[in-house]
Design a binder for these strands. Structure first.
Lengths: 332, 332
DNA sequence: TTGAAAGCGCTAACAA
DNA sequence: TTGTTAGCGCTTTCAA
């Protein structure tokens, strides 16, 4: 094509990738030719020759589609997009809801159409992370499926956040603190419950099993039932720590329905800082995950891993745990 | 590579693309070799040689990120994903929020990394559709920016939906019907207001300008203010048609605050069928867009256009307007 | 600083 | 039914 710019093919390539070692006059001549001929580089050819796609995928493995609209997802997507602003990397969001979609995506990624993969909300049984790792694709997960991941991940300090919340309750003079846990087959729920236990042990307070309720999910309804249960078994209950903000909202409603005043009689803290379906009164004190920072960090780790994989240097999984923040509101 | 399957390169290609005209035994031999060698096709090479990417992009051009979580978007994405299940086409969601992102995406698309583009929520001034059209990329828009689009689009019958809603109010014996319009620099708002007018004219009812309020946006707050205004100027008001469900919710609250009973004194209908932030009492009657069908139709049109563009047959923009549905609830 | 040439791994047309 | 071959349009050596 632009050999008609009066130069050779190689030089054109150099100009496009603005490599060093091109005389200024030549560069300008080529750029003019590009503009005149309306030249558009063929990215497939570039990928083939250059062994890179200049694109990464952000995969949502979430069969429950409603969650897609949550601030958790939208904020992460936003942060990831921002973190890529100064790079030539195109962000591709993809949905993996079914086996068909998983197969198709793995083929796409292994075929070299992306240079790396960001994974959100991976479930414990999902084979996708291991498939990607086996294919040698740089991969970074948001959250982890167990304490011992063979994949790079970024996670919030769930145990620490829970510990901080419960410590705050203890410092406030509360002593009979109930815990509403999420399903314990999820690592995130394990961590949050562990934080609760650690805080009590640290303060020398006995951990009573009658004060812990495990729920099947993180919903408001579960929180409501759990709190009703808790209060029936422990009339002296004076605080509740819930493993999610929605559960905490449910608990708060249950407590008030039972005649307890919040926070005078009983304090409530929830993990996460999303908006429950209906706002609570008083507003919930919550443990907030640093979503923007999580997104930024995921991108940074992925780009680093992409660079490493070019030089096939020794592989090392990096695990980053980001601090959470206690947002004080009137419920505690 | 798989010449070691005992066959030639061409045959391998045929097996992979399961083309006809390959003996069964040969096919099996190749497949076994593929499995043994863990062969993964290089998609960049395939794109280069085959002039297709087997991928399409669904672009969200929405600077106001909160909207991304709305049922409108999530349902469309869902429907588009479903419509692609039986194809080898990978769906790529991409965000175009800034000029940088727009430039990057156009380069990506024009470079041949996708075979077609689906556009959501395009604003009137957005140059993206025309850039893609000029590049000769098959493109389908959701909604339109004016009555005379030079791009294929799928839209809901906004005028017809509004007409049906207002006709329903007239049939119910209402005669003084207010209209709360969206910003009239948006085509969708123009259509909905036109439907309102047409219904009145069809029934021989005078269209009074004091009964029409134009708002700057589609929010609940705007609806509330508009209804307050409407009722002050027209004490005899007995029905309201709002250009969005959230506006209708705002109007409903305003009417009740003014002492009007809904629907006894005044009936309310809104366009769209999403959930307002807080549920209304009584529940809103609404005009629902067929989101699943819109998504399916967009995919169908895009795939057809992609096929056409291969055979560089004459270009023809297709415009599809899908019927809406009146969902009767207690407010009307 | 630049030109020339050798692939990258596949598809598709043509022979056999 | 299968093998052979000529590109697809770029990057990247290697010479000049």
């Amino acid at each position: 094509m632009a050999a008609r710019a009066g130069v050779g093919r190689g030089t054109v390539s150099r100009v496009i990738n603005n490599a060093v070692g091109v005389r200024d006059s030549t560069r300008r001549a080529v750029q003019q030719a590009i503009a005149e001929l309306g030249y558009v580089p063929n990215l497939a050819a570039r990928s083939l020759a250059g062994h890179r796609a200049d694109a990464i995928a952000l995969v949502m493995t979430e069969p429950d589609w409603r969650l897609f609209g949550e601030p958790f997802f939208t904020e992460i997507v936003h942060a990831v997009g921002d973190a890529l602003t100064d790079t030539p990397v195109q962000l591709l969001l993809t949905l993996v809801r079914t086996d068909t979609e998983r197969r198709r995506f793995v083929e796409y990624a292994r075929g070299g159409r992306v240079d790396g993969v960001l994974l959100m909300s991976v479930h414990a049984e999902d084979p996708l992370p291991d498939m990607l790792a086996k294919a040698g694709l740089p991969t970074v997960m948001l959250g982890r499926r167990s304490g011992d991941e063979g994949v790079t991940y970024v996670d919030a300090d769930n145990a620490g956040g829970a510990r901080g919340a419960v410590t705050h309750l203890l410092n406030g003079g509360r002593s009979t603190i109930g815990a509403i846990s999420g399903p314990l087959d999820m690592y995130v729920a394990q961590c949050r419950l562990r934080g609760y236990r650690e805080a009590l042990e640290l303060a020398g307070v006995e951990v009573r099993s009658s004060l812990v309720v495990e729920c099947a999910d993180f919903t408001e309804e579960s929180g409501l039932r759990a709190a009703t249960d808790l209060i029936a078994r422990n009339p002296e209950l004076d605080a509740v720590f819930a493993a999610s903000d929605t559960m905490a909202a449910g608990a708060l409603h249950a407590l008030r329905a039972a005649g307890r005043r919040v926070p005078q009689d009983v304090a409530v803290i929830g993990f996460d800082d999303f908006q429950p379906a209906r706002p609570t009164d008083p507003p919930l004190t919550t443990v907030r995950q640093p979503l923007e920072e999580i997104g930024r960090t995921m991108v940074r780790l992925l780009l680093e891993e992409m660079e490493d994989s070019l030089e096939d240097s020794p592989v090392a999984w990096r695990h980053v745990i980001l601090r959470t923040e206690l947002i004080l509101r009137d419920s505690a």
